[in-house]
């Protein structure tokens, strides 16, 4: 615990505050994950952890390491930027997966797909492959999954 003693009080207070704030928000996010009823509600809960939950802890780490090494140590910001960019991708894909599965199974409470005419699919560029070759390289669509 030697490195913690060198931190002055005026810096220790904000570090502790950010730590408590970040970890509490992450914890609340998972409480929501357990507590909420429907999947689409639960989709909102982890964003608490990835927005201010991560930001608070990363800010605390930046402050502490910058003091300890006597220069601005900002590399934790890379984690923050990474989380910021990847969370929308994962949550969007998960939301679409859930929507797709609910629609395919005909569950209620999900808005139908926006109707628009089927895009006219041109013949695919098959090169020298004959239709039989194509048939053998491309197996038929997988049957409905057994997982729930």
């Amino acid at each position: 615990m030697t490195h913690l003693e060198t931190v002055p009080l005026w810096l220790a207070l904000p570090i502790a505050l950010f730590l408590v704030l970040g970890s509490t928000l992450t914890l609340l996010g998972t409480v929501g994950l357990v507590q909420l009823r429907s999947f689409y509600d639960r989709l909102h809960a982890p964003t608490l952890g990835t927005s201010w939950g991560a930001a608070g802890i990363i800010l605390a780490a930046i402050l502490l390491f910058s003091w300890m090494q006597g220069r601005p140590v900002l590399h934790e910001l890379v984690i923050g930027a990474f989380v910021m960019i990847t969370t929308p991708v994962t949550l969007m894909m998960l939301g679409r997966a859930a929507l797709h599965r609910d629609r395919a199974e005909g569950r209620g409470g999900v808005p139908a797909a926006v109707p628009h005419p089927d895009p006219s699919e041109g013949p695919p560029d098959v090169g020298a492959l004959s239709p039989e070759d194509l048939e053998s390289t491309r197996p038929p669509k997988a049957p409905p999954m057994a997982i729930r």
Binding site: T47, T50, M84, I85, P88, L91, M92, G95, L99
Partner: peptide, 20 residues
């Protein structure tokens, strides 16, 4: 816009139709 809507808890981006 997707990053903004996802980063603010309370809204979740589900689907965007590029045609309509």
């Amino acid at each position: 816009l997707a990053i903004i809507l996802t980063a603010t808890p309370g809204t979740a981006w589900l689907e965007h139709d590029a045609e309509t």
